[in-house]
Amino acid sequence: MRIKAKEKDGITTAKVMAKHPMMSYAEAKKKGKEANFITYVIAKVGDEVVYEASTSQFLSKNPYLKFKFKGENKGKELVITWTDLSGKTKTDKKKIK
């Protein structure tokens, strides 16, 4: 995952790009593969949830997500986890600038 997170005046803007084929059922059928896509993304700073998305097959390949949240978070770590349809999960973190 590529993560960029920056705080300015108490607002953190995060840009995330996950590496995932996001294979929809239609695409999978055409290619003779299994459908698989990210179904859930959660971002935390410490114990606090700062972003949450339940997602579908209709997000683009290598999905890009941008979100904002409040708080004095400079220097803290933003931890992002996604789960896909196959049950695989991936977690990455990045220090908020």
């Binding site: 607002i11 996001m22 929809s24 606090e48 949830v49 700062v50 972003y51 949450e52 998305a53 097959q57 209709f58 997000l59 683009s60 999905p63 890009y64 997500l65 941008k66 979100f67 904002k68 949240f69 409040k70 708080g71």
Partner: peptide, 13 residues
């Protein structure tokens, strides 16, 4: 979430 700001972007098909 509590401190989330509902200003979200994504890319769709």
């Amino acid at each position: 979430p509590k401190n989330g700001i509902p200003d979200y972007s994504l890319r769709i098909k």
